[in-house]
C-alpha cells in the first residue's frame, strides 16, 4: 500500500503529461477520420430523431385500439339506449332453417306418418284372422 501511495505521488505528473500528449494527438487534423466520425454521429443522432416521433404515434394508436375494444365489450349492441342490467334479446331464428331439420312431436306430418305405419303394421294381423 505504501508502494502504491509512493507511486501515485511520483507518477502524478507523469500521468498528467501523458494525458496532455494523448489530448494533443486526438486534436491533430485528420479529415478522413473527422468525416467518418461526423457520419457516425449523424447516424446516431438520426436514430434519436426517428425514435422521438414514433413514441406519440405508438401511444395514440394503442390508446385508440384499446378504446375501440372497450366500446365493443361494454356496449355489445353498439347502442346506448338500453337501461343498466338489460339483456338484449336475440332476434328470432327463421323457422325454415332449423325446424325442418329438427322434427318435434308436434309436427303434424310426422304424426300422420306414424299413424300410417301403425295402420300398415296392424293390417296383416286382421287379414290373417279373416
Amino acid at each position: 500500500m505504501n508502494d502504491m501511495n509512493e507511486m501515485s505521488e511520483r507518477d502524478q505528473e507523469l500521468a498528467g503529461r501523458l494525458r496532455g500528449t494523448l489530448e494533443r494527438s486526438s486534436r491533430l487534423p485528420d479529415p478522413a477520420l473527422d468525416q467518418a466520425l461526423a457520419a457516425a454521429r449523424a447516424r446516431a443522432l438520426g436514430q434519436q430523431r426517428h425514435k422521438q416521433p414514433l413514441r406519440p404515434w405508438l401511444w395514440a394508436s394503442g390508446m385508440a385500439l384499446a378504446a375501440g375494444l372497450a366500446m365493443f365489450v361494454v356496449i355489445p349492441g353498439g347502442s346506448g339506449s338500453h337501461p343498466a342490467g338489460h339483456v338484449q334479446m336475440q332476434p328470432p331464428i327463421p323457422a325454415g332453417t332449423t325446424a325442418a331439420a329438427k322434427p318435434t312431436l308436434e309436427d303434424p306430418e310426422m304424426l300422420e306418418d306414424m299413424d300410417m305405419l301403425q295402420a300398415l303394421a296392424a293390417e296383416p294381423a286382421h287379414a290373417g284372422q279373416g
Binding site: 467518418a36 466520425l37 457516425a40 454521429r41 447516424r43 446516431a44 443522432l45 436514430q47 434519436q48 425514435k51
Partner: peptide, 14 residues
Amino acid sequence: ALDIVQEAMISLVT
C-alpha cells in the same frame, strides 16, 4: 474501431 465507436454512439443515443 470506427464500427465500435459508431455502435456505441447509436446505443447511447437510443
